[in-house]
Simulated scan of single mutants.
Amino acid sequence: MNTLEELFPSKPTFSGTWQTLYLEPIVGSGERISVAVVAIGKNNQYRILQAIRSELLECLYGAQSRNMQSLIDWLIESASKEIKANRSLSEWTAPFDGIKVGKLYPAAGDDIEGILKQAIRFTASLSTLALDADRDDHDFQPKRYSEQWATSIFDEIKTINPHLSNCFKKRLKISESNVLTTFGFLKDTYVSNFGLLVPTRLSTSLSNVKAKLFDLEALKKSPSLVKPLKYEIIIGTPSLSDPTLTDKSAKNLRETIDMVTEVAASESIDLFRAENAREAAMHIIEIAA
């Protein structure tokens, strides 16, 4: 009997509910997209997660993507306050029109992230399909994402420690040519470049990361008499346990991080992985301040 029982998965230990928040971009049109999922579990646990990735928002809405992101952030903040106060969205009024709260579903899983993954899987096709879709290798979007990542880090440091602001985007001559190479951050004995691994565009974002590594390697091997002692690549990625990542995309991301880490280590370049710009900024300040 024990052998037979081992053939079946164990019973989930975490129970709760989930529901989806839908946004009608054009109020009254009837068109709705899943923008957030809500999971509420035992022991007063709850979590609200954006169900549509920011890079997909940019593809869908272009110049208006920031406005859409602001609306989603506002929505999630309002829903979070309601759940914290009343443990439910049953009496909640959305902060703006065009929002529909989906049906409440009971669920079970290993933890609250497991319940969120169920909500994503069943109601947010734009999230999962975007991650697993095949793309043209000549997609240059990741370069812009990487630039936005660097700008976000700069904005965080400018707020926390403005004295380091002038250390960003330093340009150096690292070869006999007159071409100047730009580095993300440079101060005294420390230099770092910023890269971003975008799950929906992993191949092309990896190429951009490799280019940032090459610039660090070139500086390290340059004939310059005054060079940093510490070289680092700061990589932005989502959490590997992010419920919006499918098992396939999480595996691909993990393998890519491992590969970049190995390549960087072969040239004695450190790698720091950050899940948001503030985390990256605090790391830089700890080293350079």
Rank of each mutant, 00 (worst) to 15 (best):
Y145A: 07
T189N: 14
K212Y: 01
E113A: 06
I99G: 05
S90N: 15
T128S: 10
C167V: 00
G98S: 00
A274T: 00
Y46L: 05
R254M: 08
H283K: 11
A280R: 06
V198P: 03
S88H: 09
I233N: 10
R144L: 11
E6G: 11
E275R: 07
S10Q: 13
D132C: 04
F185A: 02
L219T: 04
D137Y: 12
I115A: 00
S241D: 15
L7G: 12
T182V: 09
L104I: 15
S78K: 05
T256H: 04
S88F: 08
E156W: 06
V226L: 11
A130E: 09
T204W: 00
T3E: 14
E262P: 06
K220C: 00
L164W: 02
P228L: 00
F8S: 11
S192P: 00
E55Q: 07
V179M: 14
N43D: 15
D139E: 12
G195P: 04
E31T: 08
E279A: 14
V260D: 01
K251G: 05
I115R: 02
F168G: 01
D134R: 04
F154N: 07
T123P: 03
Y231I: 06
N252P: 05
A274S: 07
D139V: 04
R201K: 06
N67M: 12
V198S: 01
Y61P: 05
I48P: 00
V179H: 15
I72D: 06
K169I: 02
L216Q: 04
L271V: 15
P223M: 03
L129D: 15
I284E: 06
M1V: 09
D73C: 08
A39C: 01
S165A: 15
D110P: 06
S146F: 02
E217H: 12
L104C: 08
K251F: 11
A281L: 02
Q64A: 13
V38H: 02
K11S: 14
T244A: 13
Y231G: 02
G16L: 10
I269D: 05
R278W: 03
I157K: 05
K11F: 13
R87I: 09
D136N: 15
S175K: 13
Q19S: 13
R135Q: 08
L104R: 12
D111K: 02
A274N: 04
K143D: 05
K187A: 07
A289Y: 07
S268D: 15
M282T: 14
F272H: 11
D188L: 01
A281I: 03
A39D: 03
A264F: 03
K210S: 10
Q148D: 13
F185M: 07
R87L: 11
A264G: 02
S88R: 10
T123R: 09
D242F: 11
S203K: 09
T261K: 12
A51C: 01
K212H: 10
E262F: 08
R66K: 14
L271A: 04
V37W: 05
T261L: 00
Y190K: 01
K117S: 08
N178E: 15
S15W: 12
S241W: 11
V226G: 03
S127G: 09
E31H: 10
M282A: 09
K230E: 12
I285R: 04
Q19A: 03
V38D: 07
E147C: 09
I160S: 06
S88K: 10
S146I: 04
S249W: 02
I72A: 02
V191F: 00
S10L: 13
P12G: 09
I160K: 06
W74Q: 15
I33M: 10
P106S: 10
L60G: 06
E58W: 08
